[in-house]
Design a protein around this nucleic acid. Structure first.
Lengths: 344, 344
DNA sequence: GAACACTCGGAAAGCGCTCTCCAACCCCGA
DNA sequence: TCGGGGTTGGAGAGCGCTTTCCGAGTGTTC
């Protein structure tokens, strides 16, 4: 099976009685080839079951029809369960789904790449420059990541999902995280909550710090000063722990904003355990509008994060930049919206 | 940036003052090259910042260091939301996570491929035979899918996750779905439930039919005859609808087995809406032990599905087959386990 | 009928790499 | 001094494709 040689351009050419060049032209629909020959060639293609070899083609055209989805992680070891947690999180799947919705239509493939070390990043950039893929969509996890800069300096078309921590001239799509957090704050206040608190993500990643800043600012505007903030790491368990800590330090709180739904779920557990009713005693607002939000009980009032749309836009942006590398660097910011359910 | 030509083997050879062949040998660590030259070459590599071109290498070695993750769907259109639902489901992410855990350690990359038409399948097999990837992990969604057979006939190393609907000599990993369903049945019975029902997935996909068969068989063994089964499509909403239908037709039922957690979640909603308490009035068992199970309220008693482990094993199997194409076809069946929580 | 403009198809030069020969060389024993 | 065995490094032939030249053929115009 695998052993028998596959038909090549050469074979097709021989059978059709023309040159390799002609077959190539016919297959790629280039120039006006005599309709008669055209037919003869396609016939030979059909008879041989010829399929062009993408590798060989890419080698000369410098185009692969592939885009890399790069997950840039900080120093992760193989036995580190973090990555598997990352993949199990709906975040990853939603991004892939959004990307595929536009890539698939263009016949572009997606190659998954994970880099966890600077060495890995260097190799990745090298491979990309060598035409391993036409461009990259980057999911950058570490608080500060050299990858975006390395990519732009290497001249690799790339689009970030989520803004870079430090300014880099690179395309990206992002969510107005601060606005989202402000929506949460206003919802809690308008529900009558007075003593608010927040369960945030790691303070050094942009999405997190933006949510913290947005929440604080919105409260300040409404005359609320300092609010207790407990830091989690976006997992359910960390949300539960954070909630316990908050309750211990501030038993009178009546409103909580969690920086994602998973942590809100954890908070719900901790509140139930502490005998607090949601939303009567404590109102809770999550973030993301993930499927977990509707599964929760009470169903989570949360902030909608149009991740699929963002990923799709990132893909479009990347395709455009691949087509036109000199294009001006741009970024697209999506507006979040409040989703009202039962928890606040 | 992108314009400047990248250093090639040739350049390195010139700088090191040796031939291309020698540089190639040094880089690939082949044969005993004079230690002195060895050093000279590496030095030149460092100075030029040379990175081997994978494409060119693959073209001659017939090895890409890439494995395709193929999602074989039936006739899906671009505006069909099904795919995005599929990606958002934790199933996809868990599979990717499991695969990556072993592929990454081997430096193997994963390329995502989606095929929705027979034409697409044909092209895919052609590309794979041409060495687009070294092998494929297949997630086959349609009830009956020609892809597995096409792959084996094309001599493409491939491993299925989930057994093929019709017997094909191909490696696969699967879960003992029937055993899992039996565990659910026994749990319900031992909790004292007497009038059981099931919310199944589409009856024509193997995983579904196995769960149905296992559930029925276990009940029959315990002297329970016919049980009402309502069919859903693995989404939350379909579970809710199915539960309503069941309640309408069998108001007295006191135990439900849902073929996955998402549908169990929907069932929970429908039961609450109907004023039934879970587990006091109606006991509910789910399937998968997804993250939704613990988020649910009451937390779902469910069947653990070690998907990450299965995917990892699939990856190992594939790597082995790529290494040794003549290896005997094998399959690995995982045993599910009952996870006791609150809903049953 | 010659000069010109086109159209079409073929030859061949790569793309960047690997790997099989083969020549050159070294060391040893006869 | 010479032949044989064992290294080591270089030349060069591909892997399967695209694409630039060019030459040959056709039709058009004065």
């Amino acid at each position: 099976m695998r052993t028998e040689r596959l038909p090549t351009l050469e074979d097709v050419a021989r059978i059709a009685g023309v040159s390799r060049a002609t077959v190539s032209r016919v297959i790629n629909g280039i120039r006006n080839v005599d309709p008669q020959l055209h037919e003869v060639v396609w016939d030979a293609v059909g008879r041989t079951g010829y399929v062009p070899n993408r590798l060989a083609r890419s080698l000369v055209t410098r185009r692969t029809g592939t885009v890399a989805l790069v997950v840039s992680d900080s120093e992760s070891h193989d036995d580190d369960p973090f990555m598997s947690r990352f993949f199990a999180d709906p975040y990853f799947g939603r991004v892939v789904g959004g990307l595929m919705s536009v890539l698939r239509a263009q016949g572009v493939q997606l190659a998954l790449q994970i880099v966890g070390t600077d060495d890995g990043r260097k190799r990745l950039v090298g491979d990309l420059r060598n035409g391993q893929a036409d461009g990259a969509i980057v999911l950058s996890l570490p608080a500060v990541d050299p990858l975006p800069r390395m990519l732009t300096e290497g001249g690799v078309p790339a689009v970030l999902i989520g803004r870079p921590a430090e300014p880099v001239p690179i395309d990206y799509v992002d969510l107005a995280n601060d606005t989202g957090a402000a929506l949460a704050a206003e919802r809690l206040l308008s529900r009558g909550a007075q003593r608010l608190a927040m369960i945030s993500g790691p303070a050094d990643v942009p999405a997190s710090s933006d949510r913290i800043a947005g929440f604080r600012r919105a409260l300040a505007r409404r005359g609320h000063g300092w609010v207790p903030i407990e830091t989690g790491n976006f997992t359910r368990d960390s949300g539960e722990a954070a909630m316990r800590t908050l309750l211990a330090g501030h038993p009178g709180l009546d409103g909580v904003f969690a920086a994602n739904d998973l942590m809100a779920l954890g908070a719900l557990s901790a509140l139930r355990e502490a005998g607090r009713r949601v939303p009567q005693d404590v109102a809770v607002v999550g973030f993301d509008d993930s499927s977990a939000a509707v599964a929760a009980s009470p169903a989570l009032t949360t902030i909608r994060h149009p991740l699929e749309d963002m990923a799709a836009e990132a893909a479009r942006l990347l395709l455009a930049r691949i087509e036109e590398p000199a294009m001006r660097v741009s970024s697209v910011i999506y507006e979040p919206a409040l989703v009202e359910r039962d928890s606040a």
